[in-house]
Structure formats: C-alpha cells, structure tokens
Nucleic acid binder design. Structure first.
Lengths: 338, 338
DNA sequence: CATCAGATCCGAAACGTTTTGGAGGAATGA
DNA sequence: TCATTCCTCCAAAACGTTTCGGATCTGATG
C-alpha cells in the first residue's frame, strides 16, 4: 500500500507538505503541489480513511440501524424504499453508509450505542425499531447525532422524520364516513409502534366527530404481517359480522385481510371495503387494487439523511420534518348501498 | 470518549496489559483481568474499531458495490433481495457492511478500487454492474478479495456466485416447445449483461435442438425495464405478427410486455404466452400471474457473503458457486391450440 | 547456590494521517 | 541597516489500538 510517506520520499518534501498539498492548503508552492499531485497519480495513491478518521475524529460515515432487515421484510418495500432514499441523498455528499447488524441471533450482545461508538459513525439513522426497545432511549439520550424514522422523539442530538399519520388516518375516516359506512373496524399493527398509535388516534377522533361509534374494541392487531392481517380480519368479523369497512394500518395486513375475507366468500369491495396504509408496490397490482394512503417513503429516507447530514456538517439543530402523504382511492373500497 | 488508556490509568496497569486482558490472552492474571473487565464495564468502554483496524490492517468490513441503487430499482426486488441475503449472512459473523455510493452524479470521480482502498474494506461484493464497466476489470484483477454476483469471472482474488442461466433458459425453451409453440420471440436485457448472453444462448440452443427456428433476429432488447419491455414487445410483434410466445429475460420486462400487449387487445395467454425470469414479488400478483424462472435471490446474496468471508477468514480460494433455480408455471402461458 | 521455567507485566514502536507551532529565507518598508 | 511581512516548508505530537521483545519475580530443580 502506498502511503503519504511514499509520496513524501518520492517528491523529496515532508509528509506535512504532502498532506497540505493534497488537502488544498494555500501555504504550498504551486510547483511543489503539482509535483505532489503528479506523484500521487503516478503511484496510484489513495488516502487511508481510517487513519484520517482516527485523527480527525470524523469518519464521514453514517450508520443505518435496521432491526427487521430479514428475508421477510423484503416483501414490504417500505424499509427498502427508505434505505434507497437515504442512500440517494448520501450519494450526493461525501458520506458513506454502513449497515448495522443488530440481529438478535448474534452472539455479540452489543447495544446500538456501542455499535456506533465502535464503528465511530458520525451519526445514525434508525428505523423499524419498536418503541419498547430498551436501547431506543439509550441512543436518543446519548450523544450521537441521530434521526429517527417514524418515531417522534426529539432529544439534544435526536430529530425525526415522519408523515402526518393522524391526518392520514383522519382522511381515511372521512372518506369511509362519506361513503356511508357506519360499522367500521380497524386492523392495527402492534401497540409498540408510534404509527399504530397515531393512526388509531386520528381514525377514532375523526369517526367520533362524524358521529360514528368507534373505539378500541373494534380494533384487532395484525402485527404488520400479511398472516397477522388475515387472522385479525377473521377475528374482527367474528366479533361483529355487520362490519362494512376495515381500515388496515399497513398494506401488507390489508392484503392478508383481503385474501382471508375473499376465501370466506366475502366480496371486496361489494360486501366489505378495505383501506390500507403505505401504498407499497403490491397494492397497485393486487386485485382489487388497494385503496390506501401513500407516503413518500423514498422522501422519508432522503429527508432523514438530509437532516442528519445537516446536523453533522452545519451543526444544525435536530428538528422534525414531515413528508407529504396522499389518499389514493382504488377499487378495494366503495360507497355503501343499503 | 473513554479509551484504553483510561482503563489503564483506572486499574493501575499498563495499556499493553489492558489490551491483552480484553483480547483474552493468557499472560494476564485472572484477578487483574477481572479488575480490568470490571473497569471496562464501569466506564462503559468500547474499543475504537478505527484504531484497531489501522494497526491490524483488517477492518472487518465488507463493501457492497451497487450501481443501480436508485429509486427505480426498488420495484425490482432482485437487488434488495440479494442485499438482504448478504446482510443476513454477515449478521452471523463479525463483519459489517458498508454501501458504496458509486453514483455517477457524484463529483468525486473515484474508481471502485479507490473506494475500497480508502475505506479499507477487507473484501467487496459487486452486483448490478455492466460487463462493459471500465472499472470491472480493475477490481477483478486487483488485489482486493471480491465476489461478483451474476458475473462469471474468476481471478486471483475474485470469485462469483450465480444461477445456471443457461439451464434455466433451456427449461423455458423446452417448456414452450412442449406446449406446441413454434414461432417464438425473446425480449432480452442488454448486450452488456452476462445473464442476457447466457439466457439467450441457453434459449437458442435448446430451441434449435428441438428443431425450432430461432436466432438473434427474433430478439429485442428491453434494457431490463418495464417500459423497455413494453416497447420491445411491440417491436417484436411488428416484425413478426405470427409470434405465439415471448420469453423475457426479466419479470419486469415481462410485465411491461404484458401491459403493452393487453392494451393492444392481445389476450394473454390465449393469443400469446409470456414467460419471465427472476420471479420477483410482483409476478405472483400480476394478472395473469407470470410464468417464470425463480432464482433463490436471497441465497445468491448469502452465498456471496459466505464465499467472501470464507476467503477472508480462512484464506479460501475464490470459487464459483451456483444456487438453484426453478421453473414455475403460472397463468401467463398455455398450450398452443391451433 | 546457580539455573531454569513459568507467570505476569510493561515500554516503545508501529499503523497512516492531520495539525500545531514554528523556522528559514526573500522581499518590503522605514 | 533593521524590522516586518509573506511565502514555503518541516519536525513532532497526536489519534487509539496491537504487538514485539524483553523485564521482573517466584518457585522449583539440580
């Protein structure tokens, strides 16, 4: 490996001068600089980032903590979309991304904070973490700049990006009410996801405002999985067979619910309207195409990256950012005719 | 930040001893070791990987070069699936993954090899790169251990994983021939993808063996995109309206082709049979569901990671690995009745 | 007693950078 | 002439680890 010392020897100047020449300082003669550049090109030199990071105490690296990066989660484009967004923004900067394995199966029991310290990441983007994760607080209250995706926490070094889940759910509620539905159920994720809490809140408030009875007794959890959605749909129907519409807190659960209901001989949307959330790729292709709330997932990722890098490079304060969402009516829901 | 020196000061031993204690060497008394461990826990010490990597010349990091990690590529689960596979395998080891931004839009014009040297990755996994990429050879012939996905090149430090594309395409050819098709077209990716070359070869050879005329004049390139597939399908049909079956080198192109043909009033599979390749998530949900060749994409990724890490940890030779594929008949193809 | 072996510890160098605090010389101004 | 300023350069320290080559001490062996 060719180091800065080799360049120094090769050009007959000191290591200091080489470093300063390469980094564009003004106190080096143009001729020597040229000579150094030339040597660098000749010897195919590239600086050792590790050594640089060590002394500069900046690694120009941002970490991505993703708990659910498993075989399963691929179906759900959400995570991937966010990652792509982060990546696309980072690509315009000089930051690289390292993915953290926080697989529980791993023997090494390390906290997120430890991982970050060890790898010396400058900041970290966190997504898909449960609100009851013991390490969540550790990192939010820690001293590593971080941006949370869909977890509304702000700390001294922690900001977050999300969509307005309350508004989104509220729009769904208004839509269903407008369509004449009165007996409505909901399939939620789990109790430890902020989005679940918010979507429930927004949905309930608006329905109640519209004079429609709705409370947590009309909610079943589907754990954000297709299978879970299917089971929740059946439970919901068993509890109250008069239901004419179901709002699902994720598209994947909605798809599971649709399949379960269809195989029970229930027609969608004629008998029951289904509305999802996320607008994953599948929802456009599934039959009937899923009515849902679209989020700018890619934007969520790039907004997170933008906020984090702004915090790092310009000492910006941690903030909160909201990316837009949009209600999309497709064919899995319709006006109730009774 | 608490360093190894702090531990040394705190416990009254030398830095050397602390290091050796922490790393499990035998020449340190059990009592001192305990004392050191205790102090480490107390001060919440975690080692600085950067410093360690610098002296050890091993970063315990593998790089992932992905050229097409863009908004678009998300639709195509392929890339993501492979990534997940790599990640899942790496998660069981002590390697972390860093994603390399090789976005061309980037001002910093660096070659892959440079990126690898700078970040001091121990090895690298490469996918989605075109065979005419000028930097491909640089890295294959370089001295950084690497594993290529779907690019059959072997070098001193380079191995690869792929599926048997020739066999897969051959299966499709036999299937179509068995179904009575005689006038067959193909939509390929582009000329600079090995998989395209192989799939064409396998397809042509087998068709010819079965006495069916097929050559490159019956092939249109769709550039692996949905839009490209649609356009290619129309070109194909224009050239030869008697075509009864089209083999697409990727599902995404197949879906594009189906849409284009359908909107021309052509029924699938009644008028034309369509067969794809990859078995992306969508192909199951699209109507009619796509007949295709399924690849164990996740396995492709984890096989790549396994091979690379084996090369790194056990000085294994670069090899070639093939993961299984499977022909899957769905409803976009049928027996020809004439 | 001298020698040896084993257990336990440590100083200092090394890894490849950046940065601090100057040094030496030439040009300029008084 | 001397002092000042500018330009160009450099030696050495620092970053946080690991590791090489001993050093010191205790007991045991002959």
């Amino acid at each position: 490996m060719v180091t800065i010392k080799d360049l120094a020897k090769h050009t007959g100047v000191s290591v200091t001068t080489v470093s300063r020449a390469l980094n564009g300082y003004s106190d080096v003669n143009e001729n020597t600089r040229k000579k150094i550049m030339e040597a660098a090109r000749l010897l195919n030199y590239s600086p050792n980032t590790l050594a640089r990071s060590l002394v500069m105490k900046k690694s120009k690296t941002i970490g991505m903590l993703i708990s659910g990066f498993l075989r399963e989660s691929v179906k759900d484009n959400f995570l991937m979309d966010v990652m792509a967004g982060v990546h696309d923004f980072a690509a315009q900067t000089d930051y690289d991304i390292v993915i953290f394995n926080t697989n529980s199966s791993k023997q090494r029991e390390k906290t997120y904070a430890q991982l970050c310290k060890e790898r010396q990441v400058d900041g970290v983007i966190i997504q898909g973490i449960r609100t009851d994760d013991p390490y969540l607080l550790e990192i939010v209250e820690g001293d590593i700049p971080c941006v949370l995706v869909d977890i509304p926490l702000i700390g001294k070094w922690a900001g977050y990006v999300s969509t307005d889940n309350i508004a989104g759910a509220s729009q769904v509620a208004n839509y269903l009410a407008d369509q004449g539905h009165r007996s409505i159920g909901m399939i939620n994720g789990h109790d430890f996801a902020f989005v679940s809490q918010e979507r429930f809140t927004g949905f309930q408030k608006t329905l109640n405002k519209r004079g429609i009875t709705f409370d947590s007794s009309r909610v079943e959890n589907g754990n954000f999985s297709e299978q879970g959605g299917a089971e929740a749909a059946l439970r919901l129907l068993e509890k109250d067979p008069t239901i004419t519409a179901v709002f699902c807190a994720s598209d994947l659960m909605a798809i599971g619910a649709m399949n379960a209901l269809t195989s029970k001989g229930i027609r969608i949307p004629e008998d029951i309207s289904i509305v999802g959330y996320d607008d994953i790729l599948l929802s456009r292709y599934v039959r009937p195409a899923l009515t849902t709330v679209s989020q700018d997932t890619h934007g969520l990722g790039s907004a997170a990256a933008k906020m984090l890098i702004n915090m790092l490079d310009h000492e910006g304060q941690p903030q909160q950012a909201t990316v837009p969402h949009e209600f999309i009516e497709r064919s899995s829901s319709k006006r109730l005719n009774r």
